[in-house]
Write a protein that binds this DNA or RNA. Sequence first.
DNA 1: GGCCTGCTAAACACTA
DNA 2: GTAGTGTTTAGCAGGC
Length: 330
Amino acid sequence: MENSSQTLPPSSPCPTTFGVSLPFSSSPLQTCSNSRISLPLSPISFPPSPTSLSPATAESIHSSSPLSYYTASQCLEGQNIQCVSSANISDQDDLTCLSWLHQRGNLLPLQPLPKMTPLPQLESSSPTQPLPPALSKPPYSFSSLIFMAIEDSPDKRLPVKGIYEWIVNNFPYYRTASGGWRNSVRHNLSLSKSFCRIQRDKSQFQSVGKGSLWCVCPEYRPALLEVLRKTHSYHSTNSNLINKPAAPCPLTPDNEELVTMESVDYQQEVNEEMEKDPLSDSGYIELHYYQSHQYQYLVLPGDTELDLETVEILQLDAEAQEAAGSLLDL
DNA sequence: GGCCTGCTAAACACTA
DNA sequence: GTAGTGTTTAGCAGGC
């Protein structure tokens, strides 16, 4: 039988060298009719790698389902950025530390992120919000899981063990699942043409550990992204949260800042960065990942009007959609 | 019903 | 020898 995995010579660099804009390169430009912004679709969102977070935050994230990582879009147009959170946050830096995305650098073109301060008065809000089934089986195929794991690694390559760990860390379901899924992971790696094997470089630290490193074959990356995007979109759409009663709106009617998150200083940083970053005014959006075991965070420009369709186009996650939808009632 | 895809289980060989 | 890794085969389920 054909061995679909591709083994690269040890000295070869991993072919998974992705351009910064790759995730969006094949995505159609979506125009937000009501919000004066044009945003290319971001196909996917990953939960942050716990390994890039502090132990406390990582543990907190571990306790939640990846589906509880809500994505918010931020339209950086020099407007007031509003942030609302109701989580009990002890380490706001960790909570809002999204540098894991920056560090990866090639999944999403990101800009500096604001430091945010939680809203203590909302700490006990939304008690009726259903929590994502943390221990339910993730909707993602093993190929997608492997893809996410590899993409979330700094070097875009992981040993099998690293893939295991990423999955376990990000999908609590697999913490308690029987070991058969590991076999499935290995089976998938071997069988799928999407992944290629790299011999460890004996001269480097990579030589530590068993087995090879695995990376995503560039030619199959768009397909993996598309599958992931469809899965993500499907489950977000089918979450039926849009039709749910609107959650308490995180924004005041007059769009005053409920939370000051060092907004002035940060805004200056953002603006400065936008001047530097050629992508900043090209319609790229930021995806923010927030620890949100129970509560969501929505970052929106103060006067942005988003209808549900637009929100859906922006692929805000379900909870963010819910919060954004509530803006329509203002 | 056939095909494809994905999941699961199992067996086996290889290797650290 | 053991455990982890990689490959292969087979069966099953679900969608199209």
